[in-house]
Write a protein that binds this DNA or RNA. Structure first.
Length: 425
RNA sequence: GGAGAGGUGGCUGAGUGGUCGAAAGCACCGCACUCGAAAUGCGGCGUGCCGGCAACGGUACCGUGGGUUCGAAUCCCACCCUCUCCGCCA
């Protein structure tokens, strides 16, 4: 949610930011509506002031037993009452229209975000590890996975396309990856573990920015709840409508949760394999902090996610997303992309964004700066640390052997009860 | 799911339809007293929006949204949430 005052103060800068996102200028239309709202609002307030004044006088007159004056004043206020409801309705409609308009505008990119129309404009910022050279043709996990317990057919019979069942060693490896990640994030990386609600209300999803524009990407229950598409929703909204003491910041949260995405519009993309599912698990990282802390928190979050890939020995690169590839709420995003040998490409496995006060405004989350009076909006950041399903895919493909077995990465062996290899049946 | 009770400022907690944005206490801030501190005394102490350079003025907010009224924290309706008891249940 944008601050209308910033748009009033510097409409050109606002439109320039939109232009970097590839959007038409909107400030003129917004400010026009804003001017009308202020005019109506002022008239309304003047009317209310007159009404309040007269009502007080009526009270005073009645207190003195002067019913003649009271009745005269009542008649006067009654006349006002025909106009006030109209003004009220008009004011409300305009305020709502402005809010709806602002709520649908994405965050503006940070100054150091490169301009670009789509993912081809992203810039590599860092890479780690060398893709392993295979002495056989690296296979696709969708091909050798089923013999190791990755069951697409049974899941399709139960739930349809884009679902999978993990069985035996495969289920164990998936769990091992998730537990390892969660232990790292809660331990060395200092995030507080949270087990949050997976079903959430409109307000929460609005707060992080998935609503109102992206309802079709979400699942909704018959009770009106939404299934979270990412724990970012639950974790960030943990502080919604709160005023936090500055000393409490930064707050760092992590959660291992299922995520549910309808994948509307993704028909035909990544239909094979475990890459794009309606349901997947992810270890999410969220930071709630002051504006001054945000850059460091972003760096810490990036490092926390990268550390997982490095511990697992998975080659990756870090991309600075360009303006055209960033999500709705983000001001600046790094994606981590892991090497998938079967496809010979790097695939997104983590996305780490700083959102400025964009989400904080939508959630009304503020803090009290020490030594200042009043409150300011917090900054929020979120990132995957990491997506469990895609990490499973990366481990399978990077650690596959010619005989269809998969070597368990060293750090996961303790989580596998000592099992060092997945063997085909 | 059924029955009941309740949602008021950072917290506790008053509030008769009419100077109630709201008593009081606690907490907090400033000042005084003190060598210093405690105790005590005095003063201050909510948020949003609009106007104003500012001082300040106006307006809204007592769970949320409607309604009644000249006027609603107070009356009416709906919803949300919390607590207690019963039922069901991992």
């Amino acid at each position: 949610m944008h601050d209308i005052r910033l748009i009033r103060d510097n409409p050109a800068a606002f439109d320039a930011g939109l232009a970097r996102r590839g959007l038409e200028p909107l400030s003129a239309a917004i400010l026009d509506e804003d001017a009308r709202w202020r005019s109506v609002s002022t008239s309304l307030q003047e009317g209310l002031a007159r009404r309040n004044e007269a009502s007080k006088a009526i009270g005073a007159a009645m207190g003195k037993g002067d019913s003649a004056t009271a009745e005269a004043l009542k008649a006067e206020v009654a006349a006002l009452k025909t106009r006030l409801p109209e003004l009220e309705a008009e004011e409300k409609a305009l305020a709502e229209a402005i809010r709806d308009r602002l709520a649908a505008i994405p965050n503006l990119p940070a100054p150091d975000v490169p301009e670009g129309a789509d993912e081809s404009g992203n810039v590599e910022a860092h890479h780690w590890g060398e893709p392993r050279s295979f002495n056989f043709a690296a296979q696709d996990h969708a091909d050798f996975g089923p013999a190791l317990g990755l069951d697409f057919e049974a899941a399709a019979a139960i739930s349809g396309a884009r679902f999978a069942a993990l069985r035996g060693q495969m289920a164990r490896l998936h769990r091992a990856i998730a537990q390892f990640m969660l232990d790292q994030q809660t331990g060395t990386n200092d995030y507080e573990e949270v087990n949050p609600p997976l079903l959430v209300r409109d307000d929460a999803v609005f707060g992080t920015g998935q609503l109102p524009k992206f309802a079709e990407d979400l699942f909704r229950t018959t009770t009106g709840h939404w299934l979270i598409p990412t724990a970012e929703v639950s974790l960030t909204n943990l502080v919604r409508e709160q005023i936090l003491p500055e000393s409490a910041l930064p707050l760092r949260f992590t959660a291992l949760t299922p995520c549910f995405r309808s994948e509307a519009g993704a028909a035909g993309r990544d239909t094979r394999g475990f890459i794009r599912q309606h349901q997947f698990e992810k270890v999410e990282l969220v930071s709630i902090c002051t504006p001054d802390q945000a850059a460091d928190e972003h760096a810490h979050m990036v490092a926390s996610a990268q550390a997982i890939l490095e511990a697992l020995g998975l080659p990756y690169r870090r991309m600075l997303l360009c303006t055209g590839d960033m999500g709705f709420s983000a001001a600046k995003t790094f994606d981590l992309e892991v090497w998938l040998p079967s496809q010979g490409v790097y695939r997104e496995i983590s996305s780490i964004s700083t959102c400025g006060d964009f989400q904080a405004r939508r959630m009304n989350t503020r803090y009290r700066p020490e030594g200042e009076k009043g409150t300011r909006f917090v900054h929020t950041l979120n990132g995957s640390g990491l997506a469990v399903g895609r990490t499973l895919v990366a481990v399978l493909e990077n650690y596959q052997n010619a005989d269809g077995s998969v070597t368990v990465p060293d750090v996961l062996v303790p989580y596998m009860g000592g099992l060092t290899e997945l063997t085909p049946r």
